[in-house]
Design a protein around this nucleic acid. Structure first.
Length: 506
RNA sequence: GCCGCCUUCGUCUAACGGUUAGGACACCAGGUUCUCAUCCUGGCAAUAGGGGUUCGAUUCCCCUAGGUGGUACCA
């Protein structure tokens, strides 16, 4: 059997779109599931839309997402673009000679023709067609030019494009792996430009030639390509080439069901990463947008995805990109993560939130107090929040209370249910006296729980009457981690200080 | 306008032509708990509309509606 080879073929026009990420993921999974190759090809045939640095950025993000490809372009240690694999170059702008050769062959065999029509004429023509409520299409003026006429115009250096000579009769039919049988009448297909006047190929030509030369077995791409697939098929036929399989993927949508766009929120993979979504979570989320595993499982590692992925499970309808479920998935991955790694991810956000400053790679300084802390301490702080974090970006806000010199809260918050102010004050006083006598080394959450439980019993109190005021005294928050974990992280001195502060407040 | 594609809870999605139309997120309620979160239990909520075919349509066919993609010397 022929080797399975897929390609991801973005154009370098800026950022990596989450929709493209899903396409890349499906291409990758399909290839790897079938022990095939996954190729990265840069479709930079539009000079006008090229954005500086976007290839470098793309390569970096794919790498960070863990979608490893076998061939294409890559970045070296300095971030410079280099060729990867032995098939290159995989940037279409460097393959112009190749397209030229193939297009000459098409013209030679009467599958394509030179067109010398000016942009102005074409514009007028289309306007007329629209007025007459006709589909805007090239009217075929240059289609019948004979060899001498063509040669003459070429000699006169008349600007030209090359167009595909689409048959007037008949139809193109193909079987899409997702959408099933698609049939389109030839008469509705335009004589598409395949070489532009600047000598660059258009997508249609470059894509077909490259897919053929790179031995791509499965073309997996967005649904927006479905209507132009017949043009591609016509090209394969004109060249006499075997066709790849086609699989078009449903679109990702805005909440209003229009095609997912930047206007209505973040769409760049980088934006999500910056917000503190984990790459694994993002992949997992995007996997489920348009594909289902035919079981009720929802959480998959990349390895499991490879094992499970089949094109059969891809559905046809577009899906709204709604990040509610992404938050849930991200929370799951955060909880599964080991503390060391999670802390490393959180540190930049803590610095950004101006809670701490970096002194060295393992030493930090608390901004408000200049106190020195180390990575091990940060781990304890992060551990407090691990199970309630949805996005890494929340960490600054949620652990602010740990690093604050002075908490800011209403004194009423210290009152639990129907307690009186006096009760709260007394109970805090009791706790204060009790904790004062505990050795610094015994300031551990289990021990503290034990000791304060005894205190509660001894004084026939309710747990809430003691724990709630204590927790608020330590955190200043309505919702927070438990008082004993917090106490352990803060240490004896600060705990006593905060309790005193609360008592004074009441 | 023309051509194509799509349509199941709010969202992501299951269901050989026969199911009380299933799961997940979100939401709500209860349990655990000093609070939040986690965890467990339960609840709410859908086959776009109309015709066929069939003993029986979410499922097959047709029409309508809506949505969406394409209609470039952009990809």
């Amino acid at each position: 059997m022929k080797k399975i080879r897929t390609r991801f073929a973005p154009s370098p026009t800026g950022y990596l779109h989450v929709g493209s990420l899903r396409t890349a993921l499906y291409c990758y999974l399909f290839a790897k599931h079938n022990e095939g190759d996954f190729v990265l090809r840069i479709e930079d045939t539009d000079k006008a839309r090229y954005v500086e640095g976007s290839i470098e950025n793309l390569v970096k993000i794919l790498d960070f997402m863990g979608l490893e490809y076998n061939e294409g372009v890559s970045a070296d240690n300095d971030g410079k673009i280099v060729q990867k694999g032995n098939f290159g170059p995989y940037m279409q702008s460097e393959r112009l000679e190749i397209y030229k050769k193939y297009v000459d062959e098409l013209i030679e065999n009467d599958y394509a023709y030179y067109c010398f029509c000016s942009q102005e004429r074409l514009g007028k023509m289309r306007k007329n067609q629209q007025v007459q409520k006709l589909a805007p299409m090239y009217d075929g003026k240059c289609r019948g030019l004979n060899k001498d006429e063509v040669q003459k115009l070429l000699n006169e250096k008349t600007p030209y494009v090359v167009r595909l000579k689409v048959p007037k009769e008949g139809f193109v039919e193909f079987k899409d792996l997702v959408y099933g049988k698609i049939r389109i009448e030839n008469k509705t297909i335009d004589d598409q430009v395949i070489i532009k006047s600047d000598g660059f190929p258009t997508y249609h030509l470059a894509n077909v030639v490259d897919d053929y030369l790179m031995e791509i077995s499965h073309v997996i791409r967005g649904e927006e390509w479905l209507p132009s697939t017949p043009k591609h098929i016509l090209l394969y036929k004109a060249f006499g080439w075997d066709m790849p399989e086609f699989a078009h993927l449903p679109l990702l949508l805005n909440p209003d069901k229009s095609k997912l766009s930047k206007r209505q929120g973040d769409v760049a993979v980088e934006d999500f990463l910056l917000q503190g979504y984990l790459p694994e979570a993002l992949l997992n989320f995007v996997l489920l947008l348009g594909w289902n595993p035919k079981t009720e499982e929802e959480i998959f590692s990349l390895k499991e995805m490879i094992q499970r992925f089949e094109l059969l499970g891809v559905n046809k309808a577009g899906s709204i990109f709604n990040t509610e479920k992404l938050d849930w998935i991200n929370g799951i991955y955060i909880r599964k993560m080991n503390l060391d790694e999670l802390t490393k991810l959180c540190v930049p956000f803590l610095i950004e939130a101006k809670l701490i400053k970096e002194v060295s790679s393992i030493k930090y300084q608390v901004s408000s107090t200049d106190e020195e802390i180390d990575f091990e301490y940060l781990k304890k702080v992060i551990a407090l929040e691990q199970e309630r974090m949805k996005k890494i970006s929340e960490i600054g806000e949620s652990v602010k209370f740990i690093f604050s010199d002075k908490l800011d809260y209403e004194k009423e918050l210290l009152i639990w249910k129907k307690m009186t102010i006096e009760d709260a004050k007394n109970n805090l006083q009791l706790v204060f006296e009790e904790l004062k006598n505990i050795d610094e080394n015994n300031f551990q959450s289990e021990k503290l729980l034990e000791i304060l439980n005894d205190l509660v019993e001894k004084n026939s109190l309710k747990r809430g009457e003691v724990f709630w005021p204590l927790r608020v005294a330590l955190t200043g928050l309505k919702g927070s981690p438990g008082p004993f974990e917090v106490a352990e992280v803060l240490g004896k001195e600060k705990v006593l200080k905060r309790i005193e502060f609360a008592i004074e407040k009441l």
